[in-house]
Computed example of a mutant assay.
Amino acid sequence: MSGLDLANRKRINTSSQIKFLGKVSRACGDDWLGLTLAKDFDLREMGVLFYAAASSSRLGDALLRIERYARVANEALTIQIARVPNCHIGFGYTGTPRQLNRHQIEFTVLVLLRLCREIVGQSLAPLRVSFVHHRSGDLRNIRELLGCDVEFDAYADELEFDAAAADLPLAGDDQFLNELMVQMCEDAISIRATNASTLRTLVENTVAPLLPHAEATAKTVARRLGLSERSLARRLADEELSFGEILDELRRDLAVRYLEEEHLQASQIAWLLGFHQPSSFTHAFRRWTGKSPSEFRISRGSFSAAR
């Protein structure tokens, strides 16, 4: 992301946003940067998406508007709404790796929750919130902001309300304005080219939430992508890739990120990456970098050595 992009208010792609927020977080020493930004974010800056949602008649209608038009605000973000048995809001990315993203997804979830609270005129409390990425330590702030317990290292990024929440009426119900905003959103998505997600990114985003559960196998990933294991292997081979290569490189990238976190011990990182034994993680990390996890932390000047 360049200063020129910011000065000219050009659209910045999602991958660049994620990298930028990571750098700003480290520079500012704010490990919860996404929440910090989301607390003071002016919801009107969502543009037509805000007004399309706020002018709907009920919360469920507003969420359906957000589901359909999320890419008007973010070209890589996908939102899926399910109303049975409860009101589930699922978040995902297409064409953008999910595994190194913490700040933007936390920002997105809190902003959407704030939007729901504002348009229904009450402090909605979710039944639960879950994130794919890892967090530990003091979680009181995020629990207070979201109003419920928060699960990390989950299978999916999700926000869940009681089923009755979808039927809550909105104070800004305006059929004429809603039709106008919906048409503007339809026009926007009809002229905006969508980037096809690469197979590698699809595999990475499917593998990431499976790692802490030691379920990141080619068979499981293929099933989640609606493919046979043989078809997945063939399609990866067409791109000169293999499942083992993608898994290994993803683990390496996540290991480096996790070693930047002071409180994470090597044994915890091994578990987060799906290794059965800490020694297996140490062996793999030495293969990746030529150093043990503790030596790597020392070379980076990163906190205390991994234990």
Rank of each mutant, 00 (worst) to 15 (best):
P278W: 02
K219W: 05
L250R: 09
L211Y: 10
E239P: 00
E245Y: 06
L225K: 09
A196G: 02
V207M: 15
I269N: 11
P212C: 12
S267N: 05
F275T: 00
V203P: 07
L254K: 13
L250V: 10
T198C: 04
E239G: 01
K219M: 08
R286C: 05
P212W: 07
I269T: 13
L254E: 08
P278A: 04
T198G: 05
E260F: 13
N195S: 04
E215T: 08
L227E: 08
R235W: 01
W271D: 10
A222C: 12
E260M: 14
H276C: 07
R200C: 07
F243M: 12
I246M: 02
V203F: 04
L273K: 04
L247R: 11
A266L: 10
R251P: 07
A233G: 03
A233D: 01
L227S: 06
N205M: 03
A270P: 04
R252A: 13
A222D: 14
I269K: 13
R234W: 00
E262I: 09
F281V: 04
A284L: 03
A218C: 10
S231A: 14
T282L: 03
L273I: 08
G244T: 02
L210P: 06
R235M: 05
E240S: 11
T194D: 03
A193N: 07
D253N: 14
E249A: 10
A266P: 03
F281P: 06
R257T: 14
T201N: 07
R251E: 14
E239L: 03
V203T: 07
N205W: 05
L225T: 07
E229M: 10
E204R: 00
D253E: 15
I246T: 01
R235F: 01
S267D: 09
G244C: 01
T206W: 05
T206R: 10
N205E: 02
A233Q: 01
P212T: 10
F243H: 08
A218L: 10
Q277F: 05
T220D: 14
G274Q: 01
L236M: 15
Y258K: 00
A216G: 08
I246E: 02
R257G: 10
V203Q: 05
L247E: 05
R235E: 05
T220R: 15
L210D: 02
E229A: 14
R234C: 04
E204H: 00
V207I: 15
I269E: 13
E245S: 11
S228T: 13
N205S: 06
P212R: 08
A208G: 00
S280C: 02
E261H: 15
F243S: 13
A284P: 00
L211E: 12
R234V: 08
T220V: 15
H283R: 14
V221L: 06
V203L: 04
H283Q: 12
S280A: 12
A218S: 09
R257L: 14
L254G: 03
R257D: 15
